[in-house]
Design a protein around this nucleic acid. Structure first.
Length: 99
DNA sequence: GCTTTGACTCTCG
DNA sequence: TCGAGAGCCAAAG
C-alpha cells in the first residue's frame, strides 16, 4: 500500500478527542520517512477526510507552518474536540492514541 | 527526468 | 542536556 494511503488510514483511525504523532504513524506504516508524512498532510485533500489537526509532533507541538491560518486554527479545532493543551502544545501524554 | 526541499524523528558526539 | 548529522518518501521546480 502506498505510504500516502496508509497515512490517511491511520489518521482516520484516530478517534475524536485524541491525537497522534508523526513518529507513531511512521512506526505504524513501517517507514522511517516521517517527513513524507508531513508532506502528504501538507497536500491533504480536505478536512473531513484527513483531520491533520490530530497529527502533532512527538512532543505535542503543532506544525509551525500549519496552513489554514496557522497553528491557532489547529489548536482551536483540537480544543473543540476536548483536547487539553499545555501552554502551546497538546497534552500528548494524555491524548496520544495507542493504535 | 533529475534535483531540491519539506508539516519529522532518531542517534551520536 | 544540547547540537549536529543521517535516513526515508513525496511533491514541486
Amino acid at each position: 500500500m502506498l505510504l500516502q494511503q496508509h497515512v490517511y488510514k491511520i489518521i482516520q483511525q484516530v478517534p475524536k478527542g485524541k491525537v497522534t504523532t508523526y513518529g507513531d504513524i511512521g512506526k505504524k506504516t513501517g517507514t522511517k520517512a516521517y517527513r513524507a508524512i508531513g508532506q502528504v498532510l501538507h497536500h491533504n485533500p480536505s478536512w473531513p477526510e484527513i483531520p491533520c489537526h490530530r497529527v502533532v509532533m512527538k512532543d505535542g507541538s503543532l506544525a509551525p507552518n500549519y496552513g489554514m491560518g496557522g497553528p491557532s486554527v489547529q489548536k482551536k479545532r483540537l480544543k473543540d474536540e476536548s483536547v487539553t493543551f499545555i501552554g502551546n502544545k497538546v497534552d500528548i501524554v494524555k491524548h496520544k492514541v495507542d493504535l
